[in-house]
C-alpha cells in the first residue's frame, strides 16, 4: 500500500506543477514556402458534394478564393492603411471599427449584435503576432508569412471588404477545400498524414517550441517541399488552395437567423485530426479573438453569405 501512496503523491505533485505556462516567443526563424499569399484561385461554377452526408449542392457561379489565409504581413499593412485613413481607430487595447449590426430575432441564447464600433484586432495583447510600436503595426520577425490570428470576425470581414472581396460563405469555403470530383474528407483525399497539415501533435517543426498545441506554420507550408530536413506532403485542394485543413480555423461570412455566432471551418493547429475534415464546423461570437483563428477572402459571383 506504500507504493500506492507514493504514486498518488507523485500524481498530485505533477498536477500542481502543471500551471506554469511557457513564454511565448516574440520571433521565429523565417521559412519561405514559395507559395504566394497574394494569389487567388478560381473555383468554377457547378455542383459538389456538401457536408459529411454528401448532399449535392450547386454554386451557379465562378468565384475566386485566396490561395492562402491572410498573413500577418498583409493584415499589418491593412491596419496601417485603415487606421491612417480613419476607417479604423485605436480604442484602448483594441483596434475597432464600425459594424452596422445584425437583425435580432430574440431566440434563446441569441445575443444582439448592435450597430456600433466592434473590436477588430488587439493592440499588443499576448498572442497577437502584429506589434504596434511608434504608431505602426509591424509583424513580429519571422511571422510575416504566418496566418494572422487573434482577429475577430468583424476585423476579418472589414479586411476583405477593404480588398473589394468578402468572407467566403460556408458552401463556398467547403467547395474550395473539397473540390467537385468526389467525397474526400480532406483537401487532398481521405487519409491524414502528420506532415500534410498542422494539427494537434502533428510534430511539425514549430511544435518543438510551443508543444503539441502547436504554433502556426507559414501559409502554404505543406506543399511537398522539404524544410531543413523536414519533408512535407502537398496539402493543396483540387483548386490549388492551401491550408484548408489545419493551421488556423477560418471565419466564414454566413450570418444565420436567430444565432449570433459566426461559423469557422478547417480545424487548427490546436485540434485533433478529425476536426480537419472539410465539413467540420466550429462557431463562436464574432468579437472573439483566438490564437488559432484566421481567415481568407473570396470574391466574385453571388455570395452564399447573407452578410
Amino acid at each position: 500500500m506504500k507504493t500506492l501512496r507514493v504514486l498518488t503523491f507523485l500524481a498530485l505533485i505533477l498536477t500542481l506543477t502543471a500551471c506554469s505556462a511557457p513564454d511565448l516567443p516574440q520571433a521565429t526563424t523565417p521559412v519561405e514556402t514559395g507559395v504566394d499569399p497574394n494569389a487567388w484561385a478560381t473555383v468554377p461554377a457547378g455542383s459538389f458534394l456538401y457536408g459529411q452526408q454528401e448532399t449535392k449542392q450547386d454554386i451557379p457561379y465562378d468565384y475566386d478564393i485566396m490561395v492562402t489565409p491572410v498573413t500577418n504581413a498583409q493584415f499589418a499593412a491593412y491596419l496601417n492603411q485603415a487606421v491612417a485613413g480613419g476607417a479604423l481607430k485605436i480604442a484602448g487595447e483594441q483596434v475597432v471599427g464600425y459594424y452596422p449590426g445584425d437583425e435580432f430575432h430574440g431566440k434563446k441564447h441569441e445575443e444582439p449584435i448592435e450597430a456600433g464600433d466592434w473590436p477588430h484586432y488587439p493592440v499588443n495583447l499576448k498572442g497577437a503576432r502584429i506589434a504596434y510600436t511608434a504608431g505602426q503595426f509591424q509583424p513580429q520577425p519571422g511571422y510575416e508569412n504566418h496566418p494572422v490570428t487573434m482577429v475577430t470576425w468583424f476585423g476579418a470581414q472589414a479586411y476583405c471588404q477593404a480588398q473589394n472581396s468578402r468572407l467566403p460563405g460556408e458552401m463556398e469555403w467547403e467547395k474550395a477545400a473539397r473540390g467537385a470530383q468526389d467525397n474526400r474528407a480532406y483537401p487532398w483525399g481521405n487519409t491524414l498524414e502528420r506532415n500534410q497539415a498542422n494539427y494537434y501533435s502533428s510534430r511539425d517543426i514549430f511544435e518543438k517550441v510551443m508543444g503539441k498545441g502547436g504554433e502556426t506554420t507559414p501559409v502554404g507550408f505543406y506543399n511537398g517541399k522539404t524544410y531543413d530536413g523536414y519533408a512535407t506532403l502537398d496539402g493543396a485542394s483540387p483548386y490549388g488552395v492551401y491550408d484548408m485543413a489545419g493551421n488556423v480555423w477560418q471565419w466564414t461570412g454566413d450570418i444565420y437567423a436567430g444565432i449570433h455566432y459566426r461559423y469557422l471551418r478547417g480545424g487548427s493547429k490546436a485540434d485533433y485530426g478529425y476536426n480537419l475534415r472539410v465539413w467540420t464546423r466550429n462557431n463562436v461570437r464574432p468579437d472573439y479573438e483566438g490564437p488559432s483563428i484566421g481567415f481568407r477572402c473570396a470574391r466574385g459571383g453571388q455570395s452564399t453569405a447573407s452578410q
Binding site: T15, T17, C19, A21, L24, M210, G213
Partner: peptide, 16 residues
C-alpha cells in the same frame, strides 16, 4: 487558462 497558456495544463491533465 487561455488558449495560449493552456499547453502545460493540457499535457499534465491528459498524462494524469
Amino acid at each position: 487558462v487561455d488558449e495560449l497558456s493552456q499547453q502545460p495544463l493540457v499535457d499534465a491533465t491528459i498524462l494524469l
